[in-house]
Nucleic acid binder design. Structure first.
Lengths: 230, 230
DNA sequence: CGGAACATTGACCCATGTCAAGTGTCGTGG
DNA sequence: CCACGACACTTGACATGGGTCAATGTTCCG
């Protein structure tokens, strides 16, 4: 479980300076994973919680016939693996070369007993994550293909803004298929929608993994509705 | 935010006998709401957390043009309103006459500071809720109409089983429109799917709000995939 | 340079949405 | 107790957004 692909910075555990939890994370062992490598899979025993240092991770569930739903992306600063008890309930796969800090869960639970405020932080973190997931449900359940893609782009833009990057220039580390599996669309529909948005002069596509937002206001009105935090 | 429309009983706060939290809930004031009445709305200040005593509640988000996504139903024993900080991020509406216990959030937070294990319980509760929501995302994002409806019925059946009721006889307190808004389908599609399932001899519909599961195995294979807890 | 993986584009089709009648069913008031 | 009105549900006819299948283009890495 990821702590927040799309959530304001102010509540993040990592935003709190130098709690013992923070120090533990900073000292935790570093792990490297290659693109496409799994960090953990559904059914695996939960041994660690991870914080993404560099790279990006896709979190997803699959049906027996292979249909896949990505439930979130984790970027540097995000925690993954929290929330599961005993066994992981989803898969975490790197979408580019990634470095992770590894925190054994046994230590985490020991720490929670000592420090009540950490329990509250974990609670708040998961609650935020839940809010994001519900926003995504509103998107995949009710919006049209174009609205979904635009909502996704605007959410990426907001993420950039929070991180102090240019909100008009997006670097998308995931493939079109990943975006489709996130939004409940096929690759082809995602691709066609990008092409259409470019044709309308709303975005530019210098490379397939780079999107420039040319008319944010028009995009916002296209996304329609309370598109909150994707 | 509801603590668990579709989650095993064993982890529920209410399953723990007589914590101080439990006692507080038992003494909390009782509130009655009529069918269709809102318990709280998106944007409202969070004043209380509620536990459903009788009846049923729908939790939903809406787009500006009225499209609605129900993100969960809360039944007796479930908590709603948890997780939000400051303002509610969704609407809670009774779908039948309902009684609720009201717990002021100020008291809740006071209690968490005193009792570290309560913080952990809240964390676990929200984490389970998150797992359910992600299962629902897998359903609305990837499954066909028939698979969605069958997944929904099987989830209701499991809920009955957990509560010690007949898992083959479902009482559905919500309308077809509600089911559609939950599964990302229209009323018509939900209705047609029920009719088709009856035609296949898989279910019976004595009343529109009562469903009998006649061939659970066939239904399970129809739902296809890890349909976990809806 | 060559090949694998990803992306785009086109043609076609079908599952589901939309629109429009009906048909219960329930609660209220006469 | 019945009649009426309001809703909910069902069903049919039709339209269409997005899925499927297939071909081609592009990028990048070995």
């Amino acid at each position: 479980m990821q702590i927040s692909a799309q959530v304001p910075d102010h509540w993040r555990v990592s935003a709190t300076p130098l709690t013992s939890f923070e120090q533990t994370l900073a000292n935790a062992t570093l792990k490297r994973v290659e693109a496409k490598e799994l960090v953990f899979a559904e059914g695996d025993a939960v041994s660690h919680v991870y914080r993404v240092e560099t790279g990006a991770i896709a979190l997803f569930k699959v049906l027996v016939d292979g249909r896949r739903q990505i439930v979130g992306f984790a970027y540097p600063g995000d925690l993954i693996g929290l929330g599961a008890e005993g066994e992981h309930t989803m898969n975490a796969q790197a979408i580019k070369p990634t470095r992770l800090r590894c925190l054994p869960v046994s230590g985490l639970y020991r720490r929670v007993v000592q420090d009540p405020s950490l329990g509250l932080k974990l609670y708040q973190a998961v609650a935020r994550e839940l809010a994001s997931t519900r926003d995504l449900m509103l998107t995949t359940g009710q919006r049209t293909a174009a609205e979904r893609v635009v909502s996704f782009l605007l959410a990426c833009s907001r993420r950039n803004e929070r991180k102090g990057h240019d909100p008009a220039v997006l670097e998308l580390p995931m493939t079109r298929t990943d975006i489709g599996d996130f939004l409940g669309l096929t690759v082809e529909t995602v691709s066609r929608t990008f092409t259409k948005l470019r044709g309308m002069g709303l975005i530019d596509l210098p490379h397939s993994s780079e999107v420039k937002l040319l008319d944010t206001d028009a995009l916002k009105s296209l996304a329609n509705g309370n598109d909150q935090d994707l």
